[in-house]
Design a protein around this nucleic acid. Structure first.
Lengths: 336, 336
DNA sequence: CAAGTCGTTGCAACCGGTTTCAGTAAAGAT
DNA sequence: ATCTTTACTGAAACCGGTTGCAACGACTTG
């Protein structure tokens, strides 16, 4: 099946040393005579040796893999983080193995169990909904970092963006442009990011002495479809509004479409702001003003951090910040 | 590190049998007395036994993992296939391990080497640019299926869509709607899909007795940016056209934006058709008429196929077909 | 010159399974 | 009653590494 049946033993014979010596050279964890070392290295090289991961894993207990739990492959923000993770691991000797939690707590626990069964050396959780208890328990068994949310008691060991100030900036931007009737389509109700974003929105309004109007607060679930529904219900109710701040870009797309269907122009009649800055957002019509999350960077940082952790070190992540990308979906309001 | 240090030996002691018997029960590959069997199973259950993958792999040579090489995590079409693959593997006992080829041949070979080093039992290649020679060589070493392109000599062992007829249908749709000056923005020049799509376009024109105008053929690279550039150069040249068929949806977004920037309306002035049907396309403005590729299904089918192959069977994939999704980016032309 | 060090290396046990081969007891055949 | 089967089970080798411990030669040291 595999061409590569050269083992450490073959090298040993070729170099006239014992298996142990070869192993020591290959992992350089003991002093070996430089000359011997060279001979072994050459032998290994010329034979094209590649260690058998099973044997190594069995003997050492380490697998050189880390499990990465994502929530839904194909979801823009999580995909960015995955890219970052891959990037962050290249050259470290560790390989990520990705599994998908499908946004479901039970599935998530399942896949983590599978990962543990596969003896991963570390765990990166991208988002997810596991309970604090399970999380804490997990961390005791295996080096873990969480990306995309902050967990109580894990200060510095979570990579996340400041959703509050991102949302605050976005809302303030709308206010600066003269908007006062600003609707919001929230994300999944118990989702941490969604909550923080709502708080940022609320604070920005408060700071501008604009009363928060409950009728302008709609619930959604991060999908384009939910943006459509939210806008339609807003329209149906006959509520007046000049801008809508969306839970993420997909919701913004939906909102945009729903408005157009009613003959309402964006941004001339209603302005829209999204959150995420997914790849398409620069190219839709009009290009979407949105809050950029540094997804790729977060992935990179997480990968680097877990490597530290697995090597017995510690890691301390800074809070990443989300930056408003001003494009063309927001217009100035002159008079009402 | 792990709570789970129960081994086959513990079960053996608990059930008063030998390791061998336990192994036989657990893999049921030999006749074991039903009573003994039951005892062992119960012991395993009550101890919460989970096999050590390293030991199993070392002894049996099988890892129960299959390597999946994608080209770029975050790319809509490939992501759909990944989702499908995950779906297709659930419940089979195999786990996919994803790596990213980054659209580069050398990287791709590298990651495949890594996968082989990790002793995957099978390989799924999503797209990719490896040479036919390398591919053939690979297939001799390990069960392999290729998704997203067809390889000479691998009939039935590749999962791919009929790009030709997808493109043909799209172009014909434009022709039916009265278009005769149909531009095309092609994908990466040597990319198989891009070539097939171009051929479909050309054939549809030919069948309608429309001469293919080389000035209406632009090159791109599947990115939105390339759509913008293509349309701009078309406009710059002052060439007249009423529709543009794009290599994929991202290109279509770019084209759409470039047109808008010049005050050209879609679809009133110029119609656009894309390819892929990525999630956003239903919600952009106007909702994009595009050719849907059944990415998820392809992934599922590929996963099921490789399982067959790994178990010593064979598999025979049908050609998937691409279906035109008529939405709102194409308008009828009445008079020129 | 004997004893003690140090640097370097080999032996062998071990990691936790799978698998071959031989052995035992019960059932069937002669 | 003896000889074959048949059904089932155990001992032990093996997979390919890692690692503790002993050993060995050369070099100091007393």
């Amino acid at each position: 099946m595999k061409l590569n049946d050269i083992t450490i033993k073959d090298i040993a014979e070729r170099a006239n040393v014992s298996k142990s010596t070869v192993s020591r050279v290959l992992n350089d964890l003991a002093i070996v005579n430089p000359k011997t070392r060279k001979t072994v290295l050459e032998a290994a090289e010329s034979l094209g040796y590649q260690a058998n991961v099973f044997a190594r894993g069995l003997a050492s207990g380490r697998s050189m893999t880390v499990g990465v739990v994502t929530q839904k492959i194909g979801s823009p923000f999580y995909d960015m983080m995955m890219q970052g993770v891959i990037q962050g691991f290249t050259g470290t000797g560790y390989s990520p193995i990705f599994v998908d939690g499908q946004w479901e707590q039970s599935t998530e626990l399942d896949v983590i169990r599978t990962l543990m069964g596969r003896k991963v050396d570390g765990l990166i959780l991208l988002g997810g909904d596991i309970s604090q208890k399970d999380l804490d328990q997990l961390r005791e068994q295996i080096p873990t970092v969480v990306v995309g949310k902050d967990v109580a008691g894990w200060e510095g060991q979570c990579v996340y963006v400041d959703n509050f100030s991102g949302a605050y900036d976005a809302t303030q931007h709308l206010i600066e442009f003269g908007h006062r009737e600003i609707a919001i389509v929230r994300g999944i109700i118990h989702h941490q990011d969604a909550i923080r974003r709502f708080q940022g929105y609320a604070q920005a309004l408060a700071d501008a002495s604009i009363e928060l109007d409950p009728d302008l607060v709609l619930d959604g679930n991060f999908t384009a479809q939910s943006g459509i529904i939210a806008v339609n219900s807003l329209l149906m109710r006959g509520k007046s509004f000049t801008a809508v701040f969306c839970a993420n870009d997909m919701v913004a797309y939906g909102a945009r479409l729903a408005l157009q269907r009613k003959g309402i122009r964006v941004p001339e009649d209603v302005s829209i702001v999204g959150f995420d800055d997914q790849a398409e957002s620069s190219y839709v019509s009009p290009p979407l003003t949105t809050v950029r999350q540094p997804g790729v960077e977060m992935g990179v940082v997480a990968a680097e951090g877990i490597v530290q952790l697995m090597q017995g070190g510690t890691c301390e992540f800074p809070v990443m910040n989300a930056e408003l990308q001003r494009r063309e979906s927001v217009a100035r309001i002159t008079s009402q």
